[in-house]
Structure formats: C-alpha cells, structure tokens
Design a protein around this nucleic acid. Structure first.
Length: 466
RNA sequence: GGCGGCAUAGCCAAGCGGUAAGGCACGGGUCUGCAACACCCUUAUCACCGGUUCGAUUCCGGUUGCCGCCUCCA
C-alpha cells in the first residue's frame, strides 16, 4: 500500500508517487528568526518531521530542507529595537530554534539554508524573471507580474478576479497591479542591503523559497509543506515564481498543517496568549507536547490547554509504563511459556494497523490508537505466568520502532538509582518478607517523597520516577 | 463578497455507505499485606431539517453555530 497524501493543489488524497523511485524530496517553509518560536511554529516542524520519519521508516531516502528567513521587515525592526545587528539577532534565534526543536524530538534538516547566503542566486533568479517578462522594475523595487502567470491562484483555488483587494494592499502607483508582489525591495536609509542591478535592497519574502528549494532540491520537488496560512499568498507566489522560471511543475504535493488555539482562542499577540516553546518545554515534558500534537491529525486544528496536555501526559505515561514493565519482566523472568507465534502475530497485526493509519495521509491519531492496542496486548501478555524472552523483546522493539516514527523515545533517562535508594528498596524487600509492613510502607513513602514510585509484582519490585 | 474547514460520549479524538476505533476522566469488580501498575465490566440514536439509497454519522440540498484564508502570520 502506498502512502496517500492530501494534496492542497488537487484538494484530494492522492497516492504518493515519488519523482525518483525510492527517494523523496521535501521542502518545509521555516521560521522568520526574530524571536523564540511559539507552539504554533512548532506544529509544522513536528508534523513534517514525523512525515519525514515515516518516509524513512518505509525505506525512502529522504532529503529534507527547511529554510531560515533571516532578513525581512520584522527582523530589521526587532534588531533596531534591541540595538543589535541583524546578523547577531538572527544567529541568536537560530541557535534558540535548534535548541527548541531538538528538545521536541525533531531532527535537523539536511540543510537549513539562509536567505542571506543566497542573495546572488536570488538576484540572478529575479533577473531571469524580468527577462522573461514575469517581473518588472519600478523605482528600485522589482515586482512579479501576477497577471502574466496563467496558473495564478491554482493552489489556493482563488480566481485572481475574486481576490479582494484589502485595505492594506495599497493601490500603489509603482505597481502595475495591486496583486503584484515584491521580489526585491529597495533599501530605506540605513537598512541592511545588498547591491543589485536595481540598486541597493533586499529580497522580498516569497522569492527566497523558490530560489533555495531549487538550489537544494532541483526544479521539481516531491513535497512542499508549511502552515495552512502560507497557502496564500506565500506558496501561491512561490509557484508563480518557480514555474515561470523553469516551465516545470514546482512541487507535486502540497501539504498544509492546521492551526493551534490556546484555551479555545486564537493565539495572537493582541490576546497576549502566545506560548513560546522555550518556556513551555521547561514546564511540560517536551515528549508530552509532541505526543499531544500528534494525537490530532495534522490538518485539523488543535486546541492547546493545560487539561488536554495533562490528559495526553497520562496517555503517554500508559505507553511508557507498559514499555518499562516489559523491560522489567524481560530482566527478571525465565524464558518459559509457549504460544509464541500467536503473540507475535498479534503484534504484527498492530504494526499493520499502524502502517495503514500512517499510509492514510499520516494519520497519527490512528497510529497512536494502534500503539495503545499494542500496549493493551503487552499488558495482557504480562499477566501470563510464563513469558518468553523473544515475545517480550518483540513487544519492546516494536514499541520503540513505532514510537520512533512519532519521534518519541521510550528509553529511560540514564538516571541510575542512588546507592542509598537501592539500599532502601532492598531493606523494604526484607521488611516485607518479615511482614513488617509498617517499615515497608515507611520506606515506600520516603521514596515517594523523592519521586520514586514502587510497584510490587510477582517478579519483584520495580520502580519508576513519578 | 470569494475560497475553505469544523460540529461524534463528561473531555480529547478517529471513522466517512452496512447500525460507532483509541485515549483521558468517572463508577463497579479482580489482583495486592495495603498500594501502585494492570486486567474485566459499564458509558453515544454521530448539531438540526429534508433528499438519494435496501441501508447514512458517512453522499446531496438546506438551516444553525463555531473557525480559517483572501493583509505580516505556522
């Protein structure tokens, strides 16, 4: 079964057919680096990191590119306000970005190109568009001639005539048409700028992605992804630029993730309800944040609230506990029992269910359901008097493998017990043998106060951090 | 005005033509020295009104209510 992808371009789920057998080239629009990222920024990073992981799981050779917009109005403004050089500011927030996304279990892209490293390519690209009649210079700016590109509007399914010219699109004298957008902006006094055939200036927002995607992935890429709000105008404009340039299809599949709301409200600066990843990940286990986001299909909106995150934490805990218990059993039980094939088969069924879910437009909500079924099976298996190492191992490895697709590691945090604690657990075992339950409970409470929870099983006492 | 999305149990969330996955929370039971973990049991006429169909949560039309894009935005 091939992977089905909902393609914004066609508004349909389509079987994924790579340009090149066994390979997939993905470009994800990255952040404008003038601040720490918020959880809304984190959603596409997590969603498409998961897409990337699943492709890899399926054996694809994935090339994954995500850019940094490191020069634009907001950056210049922020730098001015902070009295910092643009380059300093962007370096700082790029570092912060990596810290944040790594904490969230995302892998770095194969390349993170920056706009400021591609100025020459951008200038060249724009020059060709001008030569081809798709762009024109006007008072030091260069604009894209939207009317000239026939397919304009095909991604957002907007008719160019229906687009409302908002109050903020100025019917500028220097543009031929209100919908024309800037490829090159002339520099204002004192602004960071680069020399160009049209004078000192800097790139417009949309051109960078066309240039960098082409540079790193070629004329046509398999998947182009980003937040829903980028569909128009950003991605529409990218298509116009790239296809005018190459005459070839720019991206075959367009994926867009849904929004995040905060406590049922839109996240916005005016409401002051921005949640920065850098803050929240210090309060909530980033694994939980990731698990929470993946519990909803990527195209649907997700509501971020303390209660919902907490309930996700409890769910993830169920998976973690089962995993820990399997490991504990493996290390404490004899290799007995039979019916190996039956159990292995049941595990396989859930692997299939997981893959079917993920094949269906990366339906992580259903994938997680399959993992929970696996957990249920494991818990039932652990009820057996005798277990087989091979079965336990298969459960453990499968859980690791599937959770890894979701970018969540179940490996314990290398925190070994202090000798003191270990001694206490030993002492408690003795106390229980001697039916000195008062002392046993005392020890359990003492450890609980230190965040160590004890669980007595037929195979001995196991513990976990609580 | 144009384009689009969503409405499923207390909460979250899949399903999208054959009478409802999964998780969280709640209640009852089993296991346990007591717990914890776990297991078992219990919980939904799928916003409303029409239509198509042998049959609709699922398709079509309409109504209501939320939401997004059309302007920087993940």
């Amino acid at each position: 079964m091939s992977i089905q992808i909902y393609n914004t371009l066609t508004r349909k789920k389509e079987p994924f057919i790579p340009l090149e057998e066994g390979k997939v080239k993905i470009y994800v629009c990255g952040p404008t680096v003038y601040n720490y990222i918020h959880i809304g920024n984190a959603r596409p990073v997590i969603a498409f990191d998961t897409v990337r992981r699943y492709f890899a799981y399926k054996g694809y050779d994935v090339t994954y590119i995500s850019n940094f917009t490191d020069v634009d109005d907001k950056i210049i403004q922020a730098a001015n306000e902070l009295g910092e050089e643009v380059g300093e500011l962007t370096d700082r927030f790029i570092d912060a970005y990596f810290e944040d996304i790594l904490a969230l279990g995302c892998t770095k892209a194969d390349a993170h190109p920056r706009v400021t490293d591609h100025i020459d390519d951008i200038i060249q690209f724009i020059s060709v568009l001008i030569d081809k009649g798709y762009a024109y210079e006007s008072e030091g700016d260069v604009y894209y001639r939207t009317r000239k590109f026939e397919g304009y509007g095909k991604l957002s399914h907007q008719s160019i005539d229906e687009l409302r010219v908002g109050a903020r699109i100025e019917e500028s004298e220097i543009k031929e048409n209100a919908l024309d957008f800037a490829l090159w902006k002339s520099a204002k006094e004192g602004e960071i700028s680069w020399e160009s055939p049209w004078g000192a200036g800097r790139p417009g927002w949309h051109i960078e992605c066309s240039v960098m995607a082409r540079e790193h992935l070629g004329d046509t890429i398999d998947i182009h992804a980003g937040g829903q709000d980028l569909t128009f105008p950003h991605h529409e404009n990218e298509i116009a630029q790239s296809e005018a340039m190459t005459g070839k299809m720019f991206a075959r599949y367009w994926m867009h993730n849904g929004y995040i709301n905060i406590e049922n409200e839109k996240m916005s600066k005016s409401l002051g309800n921005f949640v920065l990843v850098n803050d929240i990940r210090k309060q909530v286990d980033p694994k939980v944040l990731r698990f929470f986001m993946l519990s909803v299909h990527y195209r649907h909106p997700v509501n971020f609230s303390q209660d919902l995150v907490e309930s996700a934490a409890n769910g993830l805990d169920r998976i973690q506990t089962a995993y820990n218990n399997l490991k504990h059993r493996l290390s404490t039980s004899a290799d007995l029992g039979d019916q190996k094939d039956i159990w292995m088969h049941k595990v396989d069924e859930q692997i299939t269910a997981f893959e079917q879910a993920m094949d269906d437009d990366f339906n992580t909500a259903n994938g997680i359901a399959a993992i929970f079924e696996l957990v249920k099976l494991a818990n039932v298996y652990l009820l057996e008097k005798n277990t087989q190492a091979e079965v336990l191992t298969y459960f453990i490895e499968t859980l690791e493998r599937l959770m890894d697709v979701l970018g969540i590691s179940l490996e314990s945090e290398t925190d070994l017990l202090d000798q003191d604690i270990e001694a206490l657990i030993e002492e408690r075992l003795d106390a229980r043998k001697n039916r000195n339950f008062a002392r046993a409970d005392e020890i359990r409470d003492e450890l609980k106060a230190k965040g160590i929870l004890l669980e007595d099983t037929a195979q001995g006492t196991r513990w976990k951090r609580g």
